[in-house]
Write a protein that binds this DNA or RNA. Sequence first.
DNA 1: TCGCAATATCGCTTAATAGCAATTCTTTGA
DNA 2: TCAAAGAATTGCTATTAAGCGATATTGCGA
Lengths: 111, 111
Amino acid sequence: MGRTLARDQLEAVAGQFGVLAEPTRLAILQSLREGGRSVGELVVELEAKQANISKQLGVLFSAGLVGRERHGNEVHYSIRDPMIFELCELVCGKIRRDAERQAEAFRPRRR
Amino acid sequence: MGRTLARDQLEAVAGQFGVLAEPTRLAILQSLREGGRSVGELVVELEAKQANISKQLGVLFSAGLVGRERHGNEVHYSIRDPMIFELCELVCGKIRRDAERQAEAFRPRRR
DNA sequence: TCGCAATATCGCTTAATAGCAATTCTTTGA
DNA sequence: TCAAAGAATTGCTATTAAGCGATATTGCGA
């Protein structure tokens, strides 16, 4: 733990972050957080093209972030590793802190 | 907390993940974890081109992940928000679990 | 002020990939 | 067995960014 990673391990980590570096994919994950969804449901909910949702779901699936299950004619996707939400929480916290620091810099100060 | 993020907030989050989606930048962060480093030191340690290290440091700096301080002719960079290491730990954990699950699938089973 | 060392920036090439329209594949119900 | 619905794939365009060599900038010592 805490040891230094070799180049190819860094690439693996970078790859995982890369999967999360896309607003559409994050939107999908956020939606799936509330429960499983079919492709069609996601298309409607996110107001996006079916082809693109399907493609991004493929990326998420390949990365092992979501699971997939066929139900008749539909395919249902669901969160496979809730760790992603911890990740998002951490990042949101950072963004919030940064914004507050930013706001701070503009607050009037007594001299 | 836990509420749903709008598109532009998702973009902000995706942007932060994007900064971490690069092995070279992760290598820089990993090195800085042990302590501040000048650009030149990083160039030597990571065996990379000065122009590229400098560029990636710029990205990390803009993202608020590292701080910068001039010392004479050199510029020293250091970690600004250790949160990133929590992020990396989480991701490493996931990669490890995935790998174990993968190994599991190839282990002989009694029938 | 000049020259050097350290860093940053510029212009470029190359490689990925998001999103789209069109098409194909898959499953079910008639 | 066929038609239609749902999902995946394909071929494409446009955008983005990593890495490179070359050059510009910055700060220091002589």
